[in-house]
């Protein structure tokens, strides 16, 4: 793969997440009944950061859960996929809550679709929002994000790499070009 551009640096990422945190509280008219659910892998630290920002400016704790959607994927019968199933841990009752699903990149929408199915099996939330750090387009399903850090028009041959301090040791979003082997 060939590096093409930096989409977000650490400072820009911080500002984007800060803005998302404010938008979430505004949309929900406060933090009442609000909870965040990060999608494995990078959605989890992102959800934790948003919860921290909300705590900083609202002075209130918003619960955070983690969701693994592997068992809900729709591409499992395609041969050659070796999915790693990880723990789903949602330490609160989601019924009646306003949930914000948090993920790093919104692309085809299939992950979000799977996450919605997974959440429906865990209870009946009052409403579900979707927050993503990067929306790169190319949706294959009627799904949109409510909160977006950065909209990036991309080609299908491109790859968006989100790197987070907690997972990758740095905060940075990069655009790469996939080269034909």
């Amino acid at each position: 793969m060939r590096f093409k551009a930096e989409l977000l640096n650490a400072e820009e990422m911080r500002r984007a997440l800060h803005r998302i945190a404010h938008e979430i509280v505004e949309a929900n008219k406060g933090v009442e009944g609000l909870a965040l659910v990060g999608i494995h892998t990078r959605g989890i630290p992102l959800a934790e950061r948003i919860a921290r920002y909300i705590r900083e400016f609202e002075g209130k704790e918003v619960p955070v859960g983690m969701l693994d959607i592997t068992l809900y994927r729709d591409d499992l019968s395609e041969i050659g996929i070796r999915p790693q199933v990880r723990q789903t841990r949602i330490p609160f009752d989601i019924t009646g809550k306003a949930l914000v699903l948090v993920d790093d990149v919104l692309y085809t929408g299939r992950t979000a679709r799977a996450a919605l199915d997974a959440l429906m099996d865990l209870g009946r939330p009052r409403r579900i929002y979707l927050a993503v750090l990067v929306d790169r387009g190319h949706r294959e399903l009627p799904i949109r994000a409510d909160f977006v850090g950065k909209n990036v028009p991309t080609a299908r041959s491109e790859v968006v790499k989100v790197r987070l301090q907690e997972v990758d040791g740095e905060d940075r979003v990069e655009l790469w070009e996939r080269e034909e082997a």
Partner: peptide, 27 residues
């Protein structure tokens, strides 16, 4: 260990109100 790790996730599925996931739909 991979299988045992997955089994732990499956055990959690079995504790849910809906004890079922679509993972093997079509098989």
């Amino acid at each position: 260990e991979n299988i045992l790790d997955t089994a732990r996730v499956m055990a959690e599925v079995l504790e849910r109100p809906v004890k079922k996931v679509p993972a093997l739909q079509g098989f």
